[in-house]
Design a protein around this nucleic acid. Structure first.
Length: 211
DNA sequence: CACCAGGTTGACC
DNA sequence: GGTCAACATGGT
């Protein structure tokens, strides 16, 4: 039985090349970006991170003790800036008090549970942090992944899709990182407006061998 | 001017 | 246990 998912990965890689995700200079920057990119264009997140850097607010300690108004101004361009401001500061306090590297070093299950208990951190944000900041193999399911799966005939909620990807692929951090990055890259170019009509890559890779 | 973006939460069946 | 408005700015 052919592994359609692995074939899809190989074809996306051949088409777009290595993506080298996540675009960030530090692990904490991944955390910040993961929270800010919720329901927002990445370009806006980049601007917000530049703003935070200009205020030297890109470490857990600095953000934890920063003035909320200053944070809000920095991240305004990402939308939902009030609740994101509060959640970003709470999350920073959590990392500042418990130690960034200590937290990220925890076993995956414990880490995921802890992240999910933070306000504003749902499955995708938690998994993005685990995969791209803690470098541990969990597959990130985002809007593009759901879209591509739907176009290919695979449906399901977050947990079901994640289980499908993780069962179908070797448990490899770098593979998960690049595959997710490629899905987003492909989605940005072909799957706009909730459809992937012109996506030859996905359309030619039926991954319907499930459910 | 309408719709959408690398989601999450809390309220209400 | 599922569904749904609210959250808010900037781009097309």
């Amino acid at each position: 039985m052919p592994n359609h998912l692995l074939e899809l990965y190989q074809n996306l890689l051949a088409e777009f090349g290595p993506q080298n995700w996540w675009p960030a200079e530090t692990e904490f920057e991944v955390v910040v970006g993961a929270l800010l990119t919720q329901q927002t264009r990445w370009e806006s997140v980049e601007q917000a991170i530049r703003n935070l850097k200009a205020e030297s607010l890109i470490t857990p300690d600095a953000l934890a003790g920063a003035d909320r108004g200053v944070i809000e101004e920095c991240i305004r361009c990402t939308g939902f800036y009030r609740q994101k401001g509060e959640r970003l500061q709470l999350l920073s306090q959590y990392f500042a008090e418990n130690g960034l590297s200590e937290i990220l070093a925890k076993p995956v299950d414990e880490l995921r549970e802890e992240l999910l208990s933070q306000k504003g951190v749902g499955p995708e944000t938690a998994d993005s942090i685990i995969l791209y900041a803690a470098h541990k193999p969990v597959f990130v399911i985002d809007a593009y992944t759901k879209r591509i799966c739907e176009c290919a005939g695979v449906t399901g909620g977050y947990d079901a899709l994640q289980q499908y990807f993780e069962e179908s692929l070797p448990r490899d951090t770098h593979l998960y990182q690049e595959f997710h990055a490629l899905i987003v890259r492909c989605g940005k170019e072909y799957c706009t407006k909730k459809r992937c009509d012109e996506c030859i890559i996905v359309a030619s890779n039926p991954i319907t061998a499930r459910v």
